[in-house]
Design a protein around this nucleic acid. Structure first.
Length: 283
DNA sequence: ACCCAGGCGGTTT
DNA sequence: AAACCGCATGGG
């Protein structure tokens, strides 16, 4: 599968770039991590489904395709998607400068230097996955997403139209439970336009959608829209933040949010991701 | 059997 | 606005 002659596309990320750390996050279908690199299944213009193999030596990202009969146009589509998902042209220097003033961030940046969030290609995909993440274990989330991808996408992530036409009963066969109605509802919206709005505007729009609350909105902003100023609090974040920045005192969530806003500003979401990635070294 | 899992919407205080 | 409850589903 990972054959030299299938290699078709090279991407040159702005350094520093840690591909392996990002690859570890390729857990939800149709992303996959096989120990060597990232695999993703995509549907191309002809309707055919192809597998994309992505690996990196740390300097260059090389992309191979399972099918050699793929048009120039399809390759350009995929290049564009991957450049977005992998944040190929992201300059993290402003964040690293900010991190120098923070004892724990400094350590995290040194430990997981070059890490960027692996984003989903579409806001829609990010939103469906975020909804599948609600009130369940990550293991269950993986099953739900995999079922949706198999049943409605033939291995690729289903397009919104397909889910719009799906029945609630059909969706429930994917074990998404009460989330079926939410998923169907968001498949009718055009979420992609949010990419060109401000984070606050996008957040307000997302919160108006039935089934999307503060936590889900924050996840969508992070993984579907790559907004580094999207901060959220859950059990792990609460524990981490209290331990590192509040001397383990039982401070409120709003205190934590305020701290992040004041100290990390527009990078508070990314700062959080760095801390979470390096949690084992920090706690 | 019971409770919980990286929420959310709706209803009741 | 804060506290409570039901929700689908599978795992411990």
């Amino acid at each position: 599968m990972w054959k030299e002659e299938l290699r078709r596309l090279l991407l040159k990320p702005l350094p520093p770039f840690d591909f392996h750390l990002m690859a570890r996050q390729a857990e939800l279908s149709p992303w996959k991590f096989d120990g060597r690199g990232i695999i993703r299944v995509e549907r191309i213009r002809s309707g055919r489904v192809i597998t994309i193999f992505i690996e990196s030596d740390g300097t260059v990202i090389s992309v191979g395709f399972s099918d050699l009969k793929i048009s120039r146009r399809d390759i350009e589509d995929i290049r564009e998607k991957l450049e977005w998902c992998l944040a190929v042209s992201e300059d993290l220097q402003p964040f690293y400068d900010l991190a120098k003033n923070d004892k724990f961030l400094r350590k995290a940046v040194s430990d997981v230097r070059g890490y960027r969030i692996l984003c989903d290609p579409t806001v829609f995909e990010g939103a469906v996955k975020a909804i599948c993440n609600q009130n369940t274990s990550f293991k269950m989330t993986k099953i739900m997403v995999r079922n949706l991808v198999e049943k409605y996408g033939g291995g690729a992530f289903p397009c919104p139209r397909t889910l719009t036409e799906a029945s609630v009963a059909g969706l429930k066969e994917c074990k998404v439970g009460y989330r079926a109605e939410y998923i169907r509802a968001i498949s009718r919206l055009d979420l992609e336009t949010l990419k060109s709005t401000s984070t606050e505007e996008a957040r307000r729009a997302l919160l108006k959608v039935k089934g999307i609350g503060p936590h889900t909105a924050a996840l969508i902003l992070q993984r579907g829209l790559r907004r580094y100023d999207s901060f959220f609090i859950d059990l792990w974040v609460r524990r981490l933040m209290r331990r590192l920045y509040f001397n383990n005192e039982a401070v409120s969530d709003s205190d934590i949010t305020k701290y992040a806003e004041q100290n990390w500003g527009r990078y508070r979401g990314l700062a959080l991701q760095y801390l979470l990635m390096d949690m084992k070294n920090l706690m």
